[in-house]
Design a protein around this nucleic acid. Structure first.
Lengths: 304, 304
DNA sequence: TTAGATCATGCATTTGATGAATACATTTAA
DNA sequence: TTAAATGTATTCATCAAATGCATGATCTAA
């Protein structure tokens, strides 16, 4: 535990001392410091008092340094340089930075955004390292605990988590994904037809109703969820040759449908209102971190 | 030339920051700093403003550090340690100190005081190095110019040299030194007899009358200086088998007479008043230097 | 819901740094 | 030796800013 010697002295005097030692001349020092000559003279007086040493000694031609002052000059130079490093906003150079950046998110969402981002980052910051961390049920506590720097999520934090920041990556409509040979695969679909078909649901938190339940309720409808999955990976396998419908964000649905016997259909017009957003979340503690700011900017660039 | 970034920020805040980073708790930091809690809270506010970073971030259980704060902790620790070194009175350890100490003085006076001093110093400070420098006509400018740390002299500086300090080493009477077979070598000597004998004079500055001239003048007398020397070394050689008298400080006379056919006689009573002092001089710039303070103390000890 | 803990803020106070003018000291030039 | 010049310290009034007290706001835990 550091002693409190420093509490009892005015560290601001050190800046004046530095210039005084360099100039050995009160008036010139004052000019360089943008202070009045009396102010510097007094500061010198206080320094003499504090350090218990005359520091500058009058001679026929100006001032000379005391032996203490000669020592001080070197030590002070080091100390002030260190302080400047403290004060200075932290610098960041992508070309040399070797930080380890930890990210999390759901498998499918990650696949949608992170590969292209990280490809871009590695091109500009070849020494930077990345780690995609398996997401827990809820990624917000992971941010809180500093397990990860970023979390990609379509959810909103439950309570008002004041320490989290986020940025909307994309907003997209929700579509229906079903087998090519599904009864509703062709022609238009009514809200009632939609509600009466058995549904599949990817529940990230593992519990509670999906957002569609609310929308249906507004139309006096409700649906039957016949299958509940905790991830997107096997959605296609369940859908092919099945009577199920999954209601998913458009780009996710496109991904899942790729190369499978599935087809994407718009939601029935009355239910179309709501859309889905994906967010990038980070913790307050990295809000000003130039590395993280840079990454956020790069992500925006990949989306543009 | 250092930029003046540091002029615009309050360095005293850094001490508070240091404790805040360690405690991550405003009230505890306040206690450790002997400040009120509001004062620390405001200081934290100013720090946030200055560094443009939240530093401490509220969480459910107290504060966490921002990423900037994590960096700061290390940098600040170094900076404050360096500042402490600046503030701290310079330490001095005789057993390890290897300073080079430069001294000057007249040959004979040096022989009187320095050998015993340096013997003592080398015993306690074996790594310290010493250099006895040939004295110029006047040793005071050498002190002014920082050619030497100490000067041994019986003179007083001409003008009021405010930058010089001195310490009386010894006070001694002045005696007459003459050949054993000198006419005045036995019996008492009157002031007139003294004045009428041819004199030798060691003139350190090389010019001007000696101090005896003044004393004689007060008695309406004056003497004839037949021989003028610029040092003491050869005084004995000039005195043996000669009619000259040298008027010298007692201990110097004893030294010179040692093993030679010379004898020491007191001054005639009326002229006896004045005595001679030897001083150790040093420059203001070393007045607070712990090494020089120590040396001065050691010199006193050798004289005691 | 209450009690307890902790940080932020409004307000009044006080400390202490500042600037303008000036006194003081010393050196240089005449 | 005096006068001018240079540079530093000091006096005094002013003003900015930090502080402390009391209080408000927020959150945790029982």
């Amino acid at each position: 535990m550091r002693s409190l010697k420093l509490r009892n002295i005015d560290l601001n005097l050190l800046v004046v001392l530095d210039v005084l030692l360099a100039e050995q001349h009160v008036s010139r020092a004052a000019e360089r410091l943008n202070m009045s000559q009396p102010a510097v003279s007094r500061a010198l007086g206080r320094l003499r008092e504090t350090l218990n040493d005359p520091i500058l000694i009058r001679t026929a031609s100006g001032f000379t340094l005391s032996s203490r002052a000669v020592l001080l000059r070197g030590e002070l130079d080091i100390a002030l340089r260190d302080i400047e490093r403290v004060i200075e906003p932290p610098s960041f150079d992508p070309s040399t930075d070797d930080s380890l950046i930890r990210l999390t998110g759901l498998d499918m969402e990650i696949g949608l955004y992170f590969p292209v981002l990280i490809k871009r980052l590695r091109k500009i910051a070849p020494s930077m390292r990345f780690e995609v961390v398996r997401q827990e049920h809820d990624s917000f506590p992971m941010l809180e605990r500093d397990d990860v720097h970023f979390s990609l999520s379509g959810l909103a934090p439950m309570s008002a988590e004041h320490s989290l920041h986020r940025k909307t990556l994309q907003e997209m409509k929700v579509v229906c994904l079903m087998a090519e040979n599904h009864a509703l695969a062709h022609g238009s679909m009514t809200a009632e037809e939609y509600a009466n078909t058995p549904h599949g649901l990817v529940s990230i938190t593992g519990r509670g109703p999906g957002s569609m339940e609310q929308v249906l309720a507004q139309h006096g409808l409700q649906r039957k969820v016949a299958l509940r999955l905790s991830g997107f990976t096997s959605v296609a396998d369940f859908l092919e040759d099945s009577d199920l419908i999954f209601t998913l964000p458009e780009r996710l649905a496109e991904r899942i449908a790729q190369g499978r016997k599935l087809c994407i259909r718009p939601l029935p017009a009355p239910l179309k209102a709501n859309s889905v957003r994906f967010y990038l979340y980070w913790h307050e503690r990295y809000h000003n971190d130039p590395r993280m700011i840079w990454i956020r900017e790069q992500l925006s660039a990949t989306l543009a």
